[in-house]
């Protein structure tokens, strides 16, 4: 499975990448196809369809030593422009 990192970006405006996942590494669980970019849709702008992926993170990666159970996982849908390769 492809390893990715969520970009550590802080753009203004409406985004659907949760703050708590920024900078975290996970693997692409499945790819979902392309969907209109919510960052444009939110403002009534023409919204190009962008690839959307389900990314799986371990709780250890998300919460570090505070994780309730490090091997539990968290899946979230992240648009491709928020992802970068992680090796």
């Amino acid at each position: 499975m492809q390893k990715v990192r969520v970009k550590q970006m802080m753009p203004p405006g409406h985004v659907r990448t949760p703050f708590y996942l920024r900078g975290k590494c996970g693997t692409i669980e499945r790819s979902l196809g392309a969907f209109p970019n919510p960052e444009d849709l939110a403002y009534g702008l023409k919204a190009p369809a962008l690839p959307l992926h389900r990314v799986r993170f371990t709780m250890a990666e998300v919460w570090g030593s505070d994780a309730e159970n490090p091997d539990d996982t968290l899946d979230a849908e992240i648009y491709e422009h928020w992802l970068e390769p992680a090796d």
Partner: peptide, 15 residues
Amino acid sequence: PDEVQVRVHDSTADM
């Protein structure tokens, strides 16, 4: 029990 893995799904986008 600990041996059951929990998978949380955060519905962040279109699914």
